[in-house]
Design a protein around this nucleic acid. Sequence first.
DNA 1: TTTTAAAAGATAGTAATACTGTCACAGATA
DNA 2: TATCTGTGACAGTATTACTATCTTTTAAAA
Lengths: 225, 225
Amino acid sequence: MKLQLQIKMNEALFIRNPEQSDLGKNIIQHSIQLIDKNGFEAFTFKKLAEDIGTTEAGIYRYFENKHKLLVYLTAWYWGWLEFQINYQTNNIKDPTVRLKRVIKLLASTVEDDELTGYVNEGLLHQIVISEGSKAYLTKQVGEDNKLQFFKPYKDLCAVVGNIILECSPKYKYPKSLASTIIEMAHFQNFFMNNLPSLTDFGKTKEETGIISFLNELVFSSIKKL
Amino acid sequence: MKLQLQIKMNEALFIRNPEQSDLGKNIIQHSIQLIDKNGFEAFTFKKLAEDIGTTEAGIYRYFENKHKLLVYLTAWYWGWLEFQINYQTNNIKDPTVRLKRVIKLLASTVEDDELTGYVNEGLLHQIVISEGSKAYLTKQVGEDNKLQFFKPYKDLCAVVGNIILECSPKYKYPKSLASTIIEMAHFQNFFMNNLPSLTDFGKTKEETGIISFLNELVFSSIKKL
DNA sequence: TTTTAAAAGATAGTAATACTGTCACAGATA
DNA sequence: TATCTGTGACAGTATTACTATCTTTTAAAA
């Protein structure tokens, strides 16, 4: 039997559900490739259409604009990652061990997940590192937030925040520490590879360094209470 | 006597030095206002030109494109902030006190600096919070870095990293901790005001909370060694 | 005081981007 | 057989991101 993993997406993010047609799946698959290759700024629906072999108008029938598509992709990633985290920390009782596991999952290179046919999680992970913040660093963040576009991200932060609280019920900043871990798992990776003097891992370029840093950051903050 | 503060800027960032003419100063002043008001995505040289009362071509004589202008503005900010930090921690011997002072400066609302005529530091601080990451989250980050565009940012990180090392010479991640403090001083502020559930300060919206969080994060990481 | 060169203004033009609209066709559904 | 849905094929518009040229103003050098 072949299992399939489906992430439930916010309907306001698209005009037509890309999961429900070949063209839709092509849009997701090729947009991930193109954004990863050329960056979000250089990415246009025209180029995407040419890449797929369809027309610009065809893409617009699925997504209103490229911002919504980026939000869709990042939201998908956070939803997928939360599933991964729940799955992989499922039967771990000790919250400390669970938190370490989460940090490792956040900061590790992602391998392609066989359960999701048309999404390349490895590339998507890279996109979330390099372009993910642009999904919310906009003037419309308030409206987008009202439409629940960032729910998957906020849910993931809440999950991590709750594990932190389990480890240390009296810790005062579980949410901020959670968002710090998540953002830094990505930013330290970007810095390590692009602006290495901003990190202590520029020489080795090993993500194990990032994991150690985050572990020390988190556990020295919460342990002593 | 009226003092004037000049930040030495990288010449590769502009075509003509905006500090050396009225039009140039107008470009800086009005671009800060416009980007703060409408966001970087909606900001165009045409709108800027109309705002100033000049023409598009006039702006292009100073800056190659809006990306360079954004990098210029953020670089200016980091240069100015490093000066502020050096100035305001000048005669503090205890590195712990100095580090606390730095964290406060990083996370506090900026008031307009009288020494810099045409730059509104308060607005510029907001721009750095909302748009600053876009200066380096691009495909050209490598080339831009080679041209030293991010030197002021990296210098500031180095300054903070060195204070961390002074506090705790054996701490293993001074650079990563420094970049984490700087990024989080801004991200927690953005989250607090726009995606409050990602922080523990969404109710009060007080930056004193962010300062306490960062202090605890930093000093629990480095103290125990 | 005249000469000259640089900066700024005025205007035009181009290629690409970010869309919207319409018509026609193919395949599935009723 | 009629019809509805998704897609392809075009056409078209406003805005963006520039580049080029020519003229006027300004400011310093001869």
